[in-house]
């Protein structure tokens, strides 16, 4: 367990710059989620921290020690891969014990620690199985046990849950969080799934085209996105058009700050067939469609030439025919000012 810090890291593959001057600190025992669109450099950053890749510039420190030139074998990291990468010729116990065997731990000690790790991931009793005799979720747990049994300084996870179906994924998220808390290991987690990042992590970082756009606690990044990209990437965001039409449609009112852009979350909006007297912000629009999805419903509304989403409990949204005029209202506190467009 240790803190990890990345400073000014630049990683190029030939002409292609995969990481551009990325600086990030990962606190000891923290759970950090790296988010970003495909090709933004998440895997590359993780592999730089792991030691599979050596960056052209910048520093990587684990527990204060510079490790840019230390190969992966010597970095004392735990890593979990998207397809688990279990050793097919070894049993579950041998898989988990692999790292201990490499470290010349005694057989008795190995047996004890493998047993503990399997207990931790709730797989006790499956030690003699082969990976191919396990379900997807069980393989996942073996991979996790194998990654943490050596007490690594940092646990690196590259989209570890993306191969699981939705229900199992949610179970594993809870499980992963529990184990991470129990072990207290510094964890860096790459994911495509922003909901997953918001649920699991105590800090998140957003990458775009190899640059770090924003990092911070999930609530802070969600409530105060630094630019429109982050606002839209992390959760849904309805952006006000820039520039605003002058004059505003009849009956509309807005109270905005001087920020470069403004956004409203779909769940902050109230939809009504007529103007809402109490609303601090109010805009007319046209109902395009309504999508029912169990507990929640989504309305698509055309507003000032933009397409906005309104999300609410199904019974809180009035049943209206499509193409009728509707009004959207929200409180001043729900307007998210964004510094950079």
């Amino acid at each position: 367990m240790a803190e990890v810090s990345v400073a000014g890291v630049t990683m190029r593959f030939g002409e292609m710059t995969a990481l551009d001057d990325v600086s990030l600190d990962f606190v000891n025992g923290g759970f950090f989620a790296l988010l970003g669109p495909s090709g933004s450099g998440k895997t590359t950053l993780l592999r730089v921290i792991a030691g599979f890749l050596f960056p052209q510039a910048g520093r990587v420190r684990i527990a204060g020690q510079p490790v840019e030139r230390v190969p992966v074998e010597k970095r004392e990291i735990g890593m979990m891969f998207q397809n688990y990468a279990l050793f097919p010729n070894l049993t579950v116990a041998e898989n988990v014990g692999f790292g201990l065997r490499v470290r010349h731990v005694s057989r008795a000690e190995e047996r004890r620690r493998v047993g503990e790790a399997l207990d931790l991931v709730q797989l006790s009793g499956l030690g003699a199985r082969r990976p191919r005799e396990l379900s997807g979720g069980q393989r996942q747990r073996v991979a996790l046990a194998r990654a943490i049994v050596t007490n690594p300084k940092v646990l690196l996870l590259d989209e570890p849950l993306s191969a699981l179906d939705k229900a199992l994924r949610v179970d594993m998220q809870i499980e992963l969080k529990r184990i991470q808390r129990e072990v207290g290991i510094t964890t860096i987690f790459v994911t495509h799934d922003q909901e997953e990042a918001l649920t699991l992590a105590d800090r998140i970082g957003i990458l775009r085209d190899g640059r770090l756009v924003q990092a911070g606690p999930p609530r802070e990044v969600y409530n105060a996105p630094i630019d429109t990209f982050t606002a839209r990437f992390l959760g849904e965001a309805n952006l006000l058009p820039d520039p605003l039409p002058v004059p505003l449609p009849d009956g509309a009112r807005l109270s905005l700050t001087s920020a470069a852009a403004h956004a409203v979350r779909p769940e902050a909006l109230t939809l009504s067939p007529g103007p809402i007297a109490a609303a601090e912000n109010l805009l007319p629009g046209r109902l395009v469609s309504r999508v029912f999805a169990g507990s929640m419903a989504t309305c698509i509304v055309a507003v000032l030439g933009e397409t906005w989403k309104v999300v609410a409990r199904d019974r809180d949204l009035p049943q209206l025919p499509e193409n009728t005029e509707v009004w959207l209202g929200w409180a001043r506190a729900d307007t998210i000012p964004i510094d950079r467009a």
Binding site: M79, F81, F98, G99, V102, T150
Partner: peptide, 14 residues
């Protein structure tokens, strides 16, 4: 699979 070599290296194997 190539990944298992990465996994082994991450575990410290030469």
């Amino acid at each position: 699979e190539d990944d298992i070599f990465d996994a082994a290296r991450a575990l410290g194997a030469g």
